[in-house]
């Protein structure tokens, strides 16, 4: 017999309590999310159309701030620097995939190598930067000795190099910074790829072996399709990472000698030059670039098997 219950009575039932609990538990993260992510992001969007400092609005500019982000030569250098990191990250992905494939094979001291390669990722970014500051040091006689790399070079009879401040080879310092970035983050990529490779069922390898597949064919036809989602994820992260590089150049060079990045410039714009409008526009640009990259990868790496499954029932009709 179905009795008509009031809402409050329904709340006392098992279903009602489940409902209230869910709402209550969701409320806290949602409020936090709205308060600290969506509201500030929305404010940032508004700020990006204004001429303003940290406290006062001086006027509305329309899209002037955005035009400036893409025309000012100061910002164009940062995009150029991002390209260094982007190219670097492709090498990083390739190398990580290679190492991951090797580590998945039957080799000795697997755990040890895994640990060694992953260790830099666990280290604090500041510590990593300081280590490499010492590594690339060019000595300043008579006060300071040569750094690690230059000591090795001179020990073999080479000439020591100004790794971080060579004005004749301005690209050198960026290459050094990209190297540090690769060294730091490659461990994470390797672990990701290893996880993906190991999740492929061994039956498939066995079948491939029976069919006489060589290692290269195994990679192209089994491993690569199997880890495609991970590769696509890594690519977005790489592009996003390339444009939002911050701590490594900020600590090692302070953004000087042409190593400034988009995020360093954004912070300087907001808190040193007190142009919060331009800085907000830069933040929005960063967001839009990330969205575009995500959409593109979605298009190219769409999960095709799922679509086939959808198509199947229709065919059976």
């Amino acid at each position: 017999m179905q009795e008509k219950r009031s809402f409050f009575e329904w709340l006392k039932t098992y279903d009602g309590q489940k409902f209230t609990t869910t709402i209550l538990f969701l409320l806290i993260p949602l409020v936090l999310l709205v308060l600290f992510t969506f509201v500030p992001a929305f404010n940032m969007l508004i700020y990006s159309f204004q001429s303003r400092d940290l406290f006062k609005v001086k006027g509305w500019l329309g899209f002037d701030n955005y035009i400036r982000v893409f025309t000012d030569k100061e910002f164009l250098t940062t995009f150029k620097n991002s390209l260094y990191y982007l190219v670097g990250s492709f090498f990083q992905q390739g190398f990580a995939l290679l190492v991951a494939a090797i580590l998945c094979a039957e080799i000795r001291f697997k755990g040890f190598f895994k640990g060694v390669l992953f260790f830099p990722y666990l280290m604090n970014g500041v510590a990593v930067s300081i280590i490499f500051q010492r590594f690339f040091l060019k000595g300043n006689p008579p006060v300071s000795p040569e750094g690690t790399l230059n000591s090795i070079i001179t020990a073999f009879g080479g000439e020591s190099i100004k790794w971080l401040s060579d004005t004749e080879r301005p690209w050198l310092v960026n290459i050094c910074l990209v190297f540090v970035s690769i060294w730091r983050y490659i461990g994470f990529d390797i672990i990701m790829y290893m996880g993906a490779i190991q999740s492929i069922s061994p039956d498939i390898y066995e079948a491939a072996d029976l069919d006489g597949a060589n290692p290269w064919q195994r990679f192209v036809y089994i491993i690569f399709p199997g880890i495609k989602p991970i590769i696509s994820l890594q690519l977005i992260l790489a592009v996003k990472g390339a444009i939002s590089v911050f701590e490594i150049p900020y600590i090692i060079t302070g953004g000087n000698f042409g190593t400034s990045t988009f995020v360093i410039k954004t912070i300087e714009m907001a808190f040193q030059k007190k142009k919060l409008g331009v800085a907000s526009a830069m933040g929005i640009v960063l967001l839009i670039i990330t969205i575009i990259v995500t959409v593109i990868q979605d298009y190219f790496f769409a999960d095709k098997p799922v679509k086939k499954k959808k198509a199947l029932p229709r065919a059976s009709k």
């Binding site: 040091l137 300043n140 100004k162 971080l164 401040s165």
Partner: peptide
């Protein structure tokens, strides 16, 4: 000035200055 301006050290420079290296 010093050979590599990118690797100067503020805290140590105080000591080096006292030692007559700067």
């Amino acid at each position: 000035h010093e050979a590599d301006p990118m690797t100067t050290e503020w805290e140590s420079s105080k000591t080096w200055f006292g030692e007559g290296k700067i």
